[in-house]
Simulated scan of single mutants.
Amino acid sequence: MDVMTDPTTTAEPPEATAEAAPGHRHGYHDAKDAYARRMRRIEGQIRGIARMIDEDVYCIDILTQVSAATRALQAVAIGLVEDHLGSCVVEAARSSQEEADEKVREASEAVARLIRS
């Protein structure tokens, strides 16, 4: 199926699945500015790819840029997984076994989604 017509492809972000407890900071909080900079850089890469398509650039050159943007997004995802495990999962494990199990399940599902993509 074509990406442009794939119903599972969406420009809208998914709804948040878990709210932070009052006073809790998400695991990525300390690196938030760095993540924001990386995402702005990736956003620029994506705009560049769209411009390449508009300008009828050679297919392989576009695919090279798509690959670079994909790797950049994967690096962000890996960082977020590491932050989640090192902060949210650890904090939950200190709280209760039930909370720890839930956070580990969430992390496992997120990793599975990353692997499938």
Rank of each mutant, 00 (worst) to 15 (best):
L73D: 08
Q65L: 10
P13N: 08
R51Y: 14
G86Q: 08
R51F: 13
E12K: 10
H24M: 07
H24R: 01
E43M: 06
P14K: 10
V66I: 09
C59V: 09
R37D: 00
A31R: 13
M1Y: 06
E109Q: 09
V90A: 06
G23A: 09
T5G: 04
K103S: 08
A107L: 12
A75S: 14
T17Q: 15
H84P: 08
A75K: 15
R94E: 15
P7C: 12
T70V: 12
E15D: 15
Y28I: 04
L85F: 11
G79R: 00
T5F: 05
A92Y: 01
A36D: 03
G48K: 03
V66N: 09
Y35G: 06
S67P: 00
A36W: 00
V76T: 10
H84Y: 15
M4A: 11
G48Q: 08
Q45I: 00
H24T: 01
P7F: 12
A36F: 00
G23V: 04
I60F: 15
A93G: 13
A77G: 12
S96E: 14
E43G: 07
L114N: 02
T8D: 12
A16D: 09
E55S: 12
V57C: 08
R41L: 15
D56L: 10
A16P: 04
D33N: 05
L114R: 02
L63H: 15
E82M: 14
M4W: 13
G23D: 06
R51K: 10
L63W: 14
H84V: 09
A21D: 07
T8R: 05
P22R: 00
V104Y: 05
Q97C: 00
R51V: 11
Q74C: 04
I46Y: 07
S96D: 12
I49C: 09
A50H: 12
A72V: 12
L85V: 15
V111I: 15
E91Y: 08
M1D: 11
A11Q: 09
D54Y: 11
L114W: 03
P22N: 00
M4I: 06
E15I: 01
S67I: 01
T64Q: 14
Q97R: 04
L85P: 00
L73F: 08
L114D: 03
G48Y: 01
E12C: 03
A21K: 07
R37F: 04
T64S: 15
A92E: 10
I42T: 08
A107C: 05
T5M: 04
E99G: 02
A20W: 01
L63P: 08
K32L: 06
M39S: 01
I53W: 02
V3D: 11
S117T: 09
I42N: 06
A69L: 07
I115H: 07
H26F: 03
I46T: 11
Q65V: 00
A68C: 06
E55L: 14
A72R: 07
E15H: 11
I42F: 07
V3H: 10
E15L: 10
R113W: 03
R94W: 05
A110P: 00
R113M: 08
